[in-house]
Design a protein around this nucleic acid. Structure first.
Lengths: 221, 221
DNA sequence: ACATGTGAACTGCTTCACAGCG
DNA sequence: CGCTGTGAAGCAGTTCACATGT
């Protein structure tokens, strides 16, 4: 009976960058576990996570003292701790809004199901495709979203509609009571501050690469 | 003959966050232009870009003085200046490596072509699909990549293979002479420092949302 | 001896506030 | 008079360095 009684929650605002790194550490730890490692030092964690050992220790210290001095971190235990911190102990219900190419691709994305994110439905306006199945998930009519949400209580909406519809869809999703949005549309969306939004803008990332290519030679070799 | 003679390049290292915001300003400016706006203040730019007017002015000031005091910025001119800064004046040649669902979806992604990113080829190991066309772009054998690259000189590789192959593919792409990589595989890749990498890890973003959902109520209402 | 946990120093991005110019 | 451009101040995240515990 060593059921950990939920250790997270420091609540003095954790930097987004810290949360990202925790996700990375989790991957490293899982790989280490798969290789049969029992214990891992902050140095080893930093190595694969692409950061420094001091950073690893600082990140973890916000949430508790999980290591053993002189020894490092117990892999299994730290996996469990970080999972708890990130809220991965439960299943999260996801709606994907927009059944275009990217929306359809995300339905089958293994990275989602592996972490307990379950796609309940894909929503679209196009009557041609409403009713079809995409990789085992039904395409539903956008007009049903609010109604369905009242029953299914989804946690997260992934928006994969064209830029010009992103704001409208975001508002629909918010009024359906969904409080977390992952926005793949190449347009900023404005929502009440009670709703959390993460945007993934691929065009923007590419432009960052173009910038690097143009300006690299001046500075580095 | 007022052909701007290339104004970019300050070369004192610009923060990545600044470059991101320049991309955002560019979108806002283009929308303003489409609406017929002739001029835009830093306040207006900040509004839609989700930042502050001081930030806008500071960002632009790294590259020059583009505004007119008491008036604001000329929309058309600033579009041109930022495009130059970001290196969008030319066409960038892109290989997509991995013809799975996400790779295929990216081939048709309009955000790419709209900004002058042209997909020359999609590479995959699966002989079943090599030779097919995806939205007008041919699927080529992975074994030809290095050979093709010597001729076509692509600028950017988009990696959309499973996590376990990401590192191998990254090395292939680097030895083919490509110096910019956009990594969609949910695994970190290690490359020489002469190569620029941007990673888009969707599982990681989702975990950030899960964290926000779990920890929101403690702090905000 | 070894590796963690953490205050203190540091670095760098953001915000402020105002002089300067159209 | 309005809005830009920018040094200076403020703040947040990272790195350092060492005391602490096993």
């Amino acid at each position: 009976m060593t059921r950990s009684p939920a250790p997270p929650a420091p609540e003095k605002h954790i930097a987004e960058s810290t949360v990202r790194r925790l996700s990375l550490y989790l991957r490293v730890l899982e790989q280490a576990a798969a290789r049969g490692q029992q214990t891992l030092s902050s140095d080893a964690l930093a190595e694969d996570g692409g950061t420094t050992s001091a950073q690893v220790r600082k990140d973890l210290s916000f949430f508790g003292s999980f290591g053993k001095r002189g020894r490092g971190y117990d892999v299994a235990e730290l996996v469990s701790q970080i999972s708890d911190i990130l809220g991965l102990g439960r299943e999260w219900k996801v709606y994907i809004v927009g059944a275009g190419k990217i929306g359809a691709a995300l339905v089958s994305y293994r990275g989602f199901s592996q972490r307990g994110f379950r796609v309940l439905g894909v929503y679209d306006n196009n009557p041609q495709i409403v009713g079809r199945m995409i990789d085992g998930v039904g395409v539903r009519s956008m007009s049903q979203l609010e109604h369905d949400a009242a029953r299914e209580m989804p946690d997260i909406a992934v928006i994969t509609v064209p830029a010009e519809h992103a704001q409208t869809v975001a508002e629909l999703v918010v009024s359906a009571g969904i409080r977390a949005i992952m926005n793949f549309a190449p347009a900023p969306i404005h929502v009440p501050s009670t709703v959390t939004v993460k945007s993934v803008n691929m065009a923007l990332e590419l432009e960052g690469l173009a910038y690097a290519l143009v300006h690299r030679d001046a500075n580095a070799s």
